[in-house]
């Protein structure tokens, strides 16, 4: 086997499954899916061992704010995906706009979450029901806070024009994680708000 003339250069900057950073993010997401699955399993286990769920004396959660909030969160993921597709086409304006909208929607989610939870007359010490719902919510909210914070960093990079159609790994993995945080909320929403009504 002789060395061919004009062998193409291997790229040093890669995106998607060719990049180790992308795989690292997939690894983190896999870990977190297991954690959230465990929390959901714990929720249903506690429901099974309790005669009434939610227990007597604890108000059933209202559906209005959380449902709106779920839609807000889904919209933020859509904004991220739109921004990601924009940068692939080289559209810097939509990239910046999409990231800003996603951050704003993430913040709206956090505010609505605060309003919702400050309206409940129970906390994690009241009953195992409170323990598991506050823990799931707290854990997921921490994720939203972290993606919003990370979004601000990525936005700074976007504003400084650091992303290019062929160079936006940071934005790509950031979008991946953002979409994960949103998608994982949907089963949590059904677990905590819909399943007790079924």
């Amino acid at each position: 086997m002789s060395v061919r003339v004009g062998t193409p250069m291997l790229p040093v900057y890669t995106l998607g499954p060719k990049s180790v950073v992308w795989w690292g993010m997939i690894g983190l997401i896999a870990i977190e899916i297991v954690v959230f699955s465990g929390l959901i399993a714990m929720y249903f286990w506690l429901r099974l061992v309790n005669p009434s769920w939610p227990p007597e004396g604890i108000d059933t959660k209202g559906l209005l704010i959380p449902t709106i909030n779920t839609l807000v969160l889904i919209a933020s993921a859509v904004a991220m995906v739109v921004a990601k597709r924009a940068i692939v086409r080289g559209n810097q304006r939509v990239l910046k706009l999409g990231q800003m909208v996603a951050i704003a929607l993430g913040m709206v989610f956090l505010v609505l979450k605060y309003i919702e939870y400050s309206g409940y007359g129970y906390d994690w010490t009241t009953h195992a029901y409170g323990s598991i719902t506050w823990t799931i919510t707290g854990f997921h909210t921490a994720h939203v806070i972290s993606v919003v914070t990370k979004g601000l960093v990525v936005l700074t990079m976007a504003l400084r024009g650091m992303f290019r159609p062929d160079r936006h790994l940071a934005f790509e993995v950031s979008t991946l994680y953002w979409v994960f945080v949103v998608v994982i909320w949907i089963p949590l929403y059904f677990t905590m708000y819909i399943s007790p009504r079924l």
Binding site: L46, T125, H127
Partner: peptide, 14 residues
């Protein structure tokens, strides 16, 4: 540390 009741049967835990 914060007083949840995951494993406290008296408070609905298991």
């Amino acid at each position: 540390m914060v007083g949840t009741h995951f494993f406290n049967a008296a408070m609905g835990g298991d």
